[in-house]
Design a protein around this nucleic acid. Sequence first.
DNA 1: GTCTATATCAAGATAGAC
DNA 2: GTCTATCTTGATATAGAC
Lengths: 190, 190
Amino acid sequence: MNNRKKQITDLALKLIEEKGYVAISYDDLAKQLGVTKASIHYHFEKKEDLGVAVADRIKQRLESILLTVNDPSVTVEEKISFFANRQIKQFADGICPVSSLQTDFESLPESLQKRVQDLSRFEISIMKQIVSNIVEHEEESNVDEESLALMILSSIKGAIQYQRVMGIDLLPKVLEQINRTLKNNEQRVL
Amino acid sequence: MNNRKKQITDLALKLIEEKGYVAISYDDLAKQLGVTKASIHYHFEKKEDLGVAVADRIKQRLESILLTVNDPSVTVEEKISFFANRQIKQFADGICPVSSLQTDFESLPESLQKRVQDLSRFEISIMKQIVSNIVEHEEESNVDEESLALMILSSIKGAIQYQRVMGIDLLPKVLEQINRTLKNNEQRVL
DNA sequence: GTCTATATCAAGATAGAC
DNA sequence: GTCTATCTTGATATAGAC
């Protein structure tokens, strides 16, 4: 991907994190980059093409998170905190681009819908891998890793939405509560 | 509010749950109601006015949930399940309208932004009231009701987003995990 | 490969007839 | 109170110049 194309993709991702896929226009992109709409159309003929490029970039980000997650020297709590904060840093004052695309789902072309589904599945699988070592003998405990992973992931995503509109850092409190939940689960297994 | 006005508000709410505030148009509403755009503009001069009416309706819904929540004969688990399922039923195959408006936040006029902030605060306060009786002597335990409420509310909202795009009922699993978390918290207090 | 110019369409919105 | 007709603006998109 050449420079300008990458530049456009990066900006589109940033704007999707701020306003969402439906709300952004080629004019927004063109103005902020100091070029014309036609120049954006040259690199991405249709908005759908740009959306797909952005989805691919989000996937890359998630893949880079996966690397850290598979390091056995890092605790589960640290991995969750890393997962949450790494993303927070990336989308700054916006929201998670996956959440943003999920909300716009019904307005998306089919190719993008498929990628949003894929990203959603991927995030769930990452969180499952993160909590997968917490219970070594799941059959013997009452902990369901799938449910635990879903609750943790969902609560992180939900908290990011609330904190953006309220202007308060709610995520740290949610992460604290997640840690308490994990500690309690560990105790029940021992 | 007269009949047509109520009809338009109801439909707008439904469409916001499906596609979001930015994505819906007066033409969508007009076509589905079998009237013209101008007729919608008569009842709601600007889209902003319609958005405010929808926000007020969402607030009414939440207030009706609050009534059940304050019934002392209902358990916390039942209240949370009621909170989640009551909403799920209301927005059917869509997402939570509050989540939807949160995502579109940056595109909203100021009057609507204020209402979305108010709705967010209100939901958090409802969930706080739901969990408020679970720990009678909070100072003596390590349970933080604020964090617990935030995690529960966020995870419900997040789960609804994932399940809509994936076409799988993930919320029941998250509710199960929430119940397990509550049980563990209770045990720590006793 | 990037631009100008323009086409096309849909959006929000208004004036005024009935 | 609802409609027809119309305006303006902005969005996606294309053709063709440079």
